Amino acid sequence: MSSAIAVIDFETTGMTPTQGARATEVAIVLLEQGRVVDRFQSLMQTGAWVSPFITQLTGITNEMLRTAPPAADVMREAAPHAFVCTVLLSRRIYPQAPSHSLGNLARYLHLPPTGRAHRALADAEMAAALLGRMQQDLCTRHALPWPEHALLMQLQRCSKARTSSWLAQQAAQASLTAG
């Protein structure tokens, strides 16, 4: 039985919480067997000020956030399912990629655009497309059955140096169970 995997993206007022950055938007895309089965998106009020640079980058304004629901309410409603980190996975699956940022990976893998970059739903949908592509590539390149959440979690924790041997071991185990 397949389980859903949540792909989550946040838009923020800056790069790090230690420097005062706060979330302004969250989006979640639920995948089952590589297909989108549900979506959630919301702006959220954290009381943080949005700089003109961030507004230009994301399109999110201070005015938009004044009427947004409180972040705690949004996160309670979102209550994410099991999730994986596409950055960690991409470093294991595509070590040759010139960059592991979402936009650069999407271009590297020729994934179709999903909307305005730096908006949570478009980025979450792009990350979901990337995750589906990674699952597909794990099947075709490494002879694995469809990689569910547990396997993806193990893979993202695997060291880069051990990834190839770990994938070969997983393929051998899958072959034994299938045969």
Rank of each mutant, 00 (worst) to 15 (best):
L121Q: 00
S101Q: 04
I93H: 04
A129G: 07
L31W: 06
G132C: 04
M1Y: 02
T24D: 01
T163Y: 05
G103F: 01
P112R: 06
P98Y: 05
P145K: 07
A124T: 15
S101F: 08
A4E: 13
V87H: 15
V37N: 04
D9S: 03
P95W: 07
A150N: 09
R76E: 07
A122Y: 12
T163V: 14
H81L: 12
W166H: 11
S51Y: 06
F53D: 13
L144W: 12
T58V: 06
A171Q: 04
T46Y: 13
L102W: 03
E148C: 00
L130W: 01
A97Q: 06
P147H: 08
W166K: 08
T140N: 04
G47C: 15
V7N: 03
S2D: 09
A128Y: 05
D123F: 02
T55Q: 15
R141L: 11
Q135Y: 03
T24Q: 02
T140Y: 05
A21W: 10
Q135D: 09
A174N: 15
L155R: 08
E63V: 14
Q96L: 14
M134N: 06
A72H: 10
L167K: 00
E77Y: 07
T67L: 15
P80F: 06
T140K: 02
H100F: 12
S159I: 02
H149E: 10
T12N: 09
R76V: 08
A6Q: 01
M75S: 05
P70S: 10
V37P: 02
R119P: 00
G14L: 04
G34E: 03
P80A: 09
R141G: 12
H118T: 12
G34Y: 02
P98G: 06
F10E: 14
V84I: 14
T12A: 15
W49Q: 06
S165V: 08
A68K: 04
C85I: 11
T163F: 09
P17H: 06
Q56E: 14
P95V: 14
T140D: 11
T13E: 10
V36A: 02
C158H: 11
A27N: 11
P113A: 11
V87M: 15
M75C: 09
M153H: 05
L30C: 03
T13D: 08
A127H: 04
V87Y: 15
Y108V: 12
T18Y: 04
R22S: 11
R119G: 01
G132N: 06
T140I: 01
A68G: 07
C158I: 13
W49G: 04
A71L: 06
P52F: 00
Q169K: 13
W146F: 12
E25I: 02
G179M: 07
G34R: 02
M153F: 07
Q154V: 08
R157M: 14
A68Q: 12
T114V: 00
Q96V: 11
Q156V: 13
S175M: 07
H110W: 10
L144S: 15
A127N: 10
M1C: 03
